[in-house]
Design a protein around this nucleic acid. Structure first.
Length: 486
DNA sequence: ATGTTC
């Protein structure tokens, strides 16, 4: 067990705590952790708050070093962290602030089916999904691309596969950034990374990645739910995956390339894992170009996962996926750094917003939102755990005022993987889930143990905080009925 | 998260 946080946590309001910059001489800004009085107790138990303070020392950081209520310890930066840096003030870019899984994210696919239509098909659907969609570490899939095609895929994003009839053009407008982060450069991605990615597009991966069949079990905002096309008892498919070995390798390559940057650019770091370079330095620019290309691979991976799920549903119900209403609600990235315009201390600035386990949550009216959602706000997709719930929220105005347009990304771990495995010894997690009405298939028993519901905080409590803080508002709660995992 | 310690 890691040591508990020993520094000050001042209560700002009912859903926010502050680590004042006076805590340490090297902090340039405050740390702010969004949590209520109950959640902050679990937050204090590990060193994630120390990581929030560490991030507050980075050159060019703006506003505050931020953390969402699903905060937990990660590589250098905590997971659930948000940090914005101004390149005009020597602001840095840091691979640890994005995460190893570049453009890990989640998409929600709607259907026109209801629970009564699906309840006798769940076991068959889960089997079909499990045998169609490759899952597990290192697994390749049915879509194989050579190096040239993989680089083209990174330059074009999901459009590359949609042009090959693996989806439809309207999938793009329902993906963050229209499924294409501009100015990605596949030539900045190493041959090694490309090779790892060439066979893995359209595969789920392992760890917390999943594909779930879910049912809308509560609607909290009827108007927004209607605008999103969601209603009570409707069946949806949620997909959580990232950029697989390709993104991992891009991160690893960048960490190696950044090793001497702190000395070269005169940056003092409290933790070597915060390796970073000025965003406008040659090293910074190279990572940004490669990270953007890897992000486009991540969107494409989820596009191919969705397409396979559409095929499985079509086969199960003997109807085309279009006739089953399998439309994409939205796809969001929760591990990424993006250049965005924000108002800081009354001044409009272009800043590098690092979201590591945090979701963009732009409110109604934001110019970057697609036409379909500009009047209502961005759909925010929040995966929970495989036994309890996941959520659809909508971006709210408070995010622009307090968190650089960001909200939480999930439930957040409450138990280490090791602790979860110990807890699961002698138990059958799949049987326990089945007794609660969830059919789960996983390629690894151990994986299922590490991901058991009790390993996570209750996502409802996390969502309560971001709702109350007005970072994003509750729209609908989904309960899982079928799960496939790596 | 990850060819889960190239």
């Amino acid at each position: 067990m890691k040591a508990a946080f020993a520094g000050p946590l001042e209560r700002v309001d009912s859903c926010c705590y502050r680590i004042p910059k006076s805590y340490r001489a090297d902090m340039r800004v405050d740390g702010l952790i969004f949590a209520n009085d109950a959640l902050i107790e679990s937050v204090k138990k590990d060193q994630a708050p120390d990581q929030v303070a560490n991030v507050a020392t980075l050159p060019g950081i703006q506003g505050a070093s931020l953390a969402m209520p699903d905060i937990h310890w990660g590589y250098g930066f905590c997971i659930g962290g948000v940090c914005a840096t101004d390149p005009a003030e020597g602001g840095v870019i840091s691979p640890g602030g994005v995460g190893y899984d570049i453009n890990c994210g989640v998409r929600l696919v709607k259907t026109n089916l209801f629970w009564d239509d699906v309840k006798h098909h769940v076991r068959s659907l889960v089997k079909g999904l499990f045998h169609t969609i490759p899952a597990g570490a290192g697994r390749g899939g049915r879509y194989k691309f050579d190096a040239v095609e993989t680089r083209r895929l990174m330059a074009q994003g999901p459009r590359f596969v949609i042009d090959r009839d693996l989806g439809v053009p309207r999938d793009l407008t329902h993906t963050e950034a229209d499924g294409l982060i501009p100015d990605g450069d596949p030539d900045q991605v190493s041959d090694h990374a490309v090779k790892r990615g060439a066979e893995q597009c359209g595969t789920l991966g392992s760890g917390n990645h999943f594909l779930e069949v879910q049912v809308v079990d509560s609607v909290f905002d009827a108007d927004v739910a209607k605008a999103f096309g969601l209603e009570l008892n409707q069946v949806c498919v949620m997909i959580h995956s990232g950029s697989r070995g390709l993104g991992y390798q891009v991160c690893d390559d960048a960490l190696a390339a950044f090793r001497n940057c702190p000395a070269k650019y005169g940056i003092t770091l409290p933790d070597r894992q915060l390796a970073c370079a000025p965003a406008e330095s040659p090293e910074g620019k190279k990572y940004i170009a490669a990270m953007r290309a890897a992000a486009n691979y991540g969107f494409t991976n989820r596009q191919l996962l969705m397409q396979q799920a559409r095929e499985v549903f079509a086969a199960e119900f003997g109807r085309k996926w279009e006739d089953l209403g399998m439309e994409l609600l939205y796809d969001v990235a929760h591990n990424i750094a993006k250049l965005e315009e924000h108002v800081v201390d009354g001044k409009r600035k272009r800043v590098w917003v690092h979201r590591k386990g945090a979701t963009r949550a732009f409110p109604a009216g934001h110019p970057e939102l697609p036409d379909v959602y500009r009047a209502v706000g961005q759909p925010v997709i929040i995966p929970g755990d495989m036994g309890r719930a996941s959520w659809v929220l909508v971006g709210a105005a408070g995010s622009m005022e307090r968190t650089f347009g960001s909200t939480c990304h999930g439930a957040g771990r409450a138990m280490s993987r090791t602790a979860a495995k110990l807890q699961a010894a002698g138990r059958r997690i799949d049987k326990e889930l089945e007794s609660k009405g969830v059919i789960a298939m996983a390629s690894s028993r151990m994986g299922l143990a590490e991901e058991q519901p009790a390993a996570y905080k209750n996502v409802d409590h996390v969502v309560d905080v971001v709702h109350e803080a007005n970072l994003s508002r509750k729209v609908a709660r989904m309960r899982p009925v079928g799960v496939i995992k790596g």
